[in-house]
Amino acid sequence: MNVLSAVLLLSGALFCVLGAVGMLRLPDVPSRLQAATKPQTLGLLLILVGTALRLPPSYAVGLALVALFQMLTAPVLSQFLGRAAYRTGAVDESTLLCDDLKSVRDNDAESGSASPGA
């Protein structure tokens, strides 16, 4: 049990470190957003499970709530930030292999209609 817990805690920490490395190495807001939010989610889950194994069950229940709300809120956050980054031009377009949204956006700008899905 102790070994399993230690493995979970360490691999959780490893994912958090990898997220930090991604933050430093990646070029623009949306890609950094990936590194900042996603490996952390996994890292936090692993750490929570590792911790729960070593605690009395009544405390472990609280940790399950932490995990649940982390998984509910993290995607919403990354969607909002990513969208804001895209709209304010914080996306480095040279990193994009293709951009299906660009043509939609440009068409809207030309015809003067409202932006899609606002």
Partner: peptide, 9 residues
Amino acid sequence: GRKVRAAVI
């Protein structure tokens, strides 16, 4: 790193 590629699909 900086040469990572992405796409909006």
